[in-house]
Amino acid sequence: MNTIILKTASKYLLPLLLLFSIFVLLRGHYLPGGGFVGGLIAAIAFVLHAFANGLPHTQRLMRIHPGFLMPFGLAISAVSGMFPMLLNQPFMTGVWKKDPVPVIGSLGSALFFDIGVYLVVIGASLTILFTISETR
């Protein structure tokens, strides 16, 4: 019985939580939050979905294996860290766009870095949890 409730709830919960996680990610520079927490919230969203609808369903929904989020995330973070080196600035130096962007605030390499973190956190935690669920 409660699976039905959960199923219905998760249908709406997943996009909602994902949106929230992105919000947490983007606002992290100003309010509590950031890539870590954002990523973890997103991961929990998918886990809840998997609990409700079964793992295969969630995996179909995601299309790619969550593990592939890790190299993507790492690549984004690494590139945003190394980008300043092209400008002959030390590794990880913040590079900022002049004018602030609505919602996010100032746009800079730090944000891309945080997006990388976000992706890696989702990828890693989902890989761990999904693998375990698959191979009980």
């Binding site: 870590f36 956190v121 890693a124 935690s125 761990i128 375990i132």
Partner: peptide, 20 residues
């Protein structure tokens, strides 16, 4: 601590699976 927590999450997850 935030860094440490996330790192220990990774290590703990690994250790738990190792036990399994």
């Amino acid at each position: 601590i935030l860094t440490a927590i996330v790192i220990s999450f990774g290590l703990q997850a690994y250790a738990i699976i190792l036990v399994k």
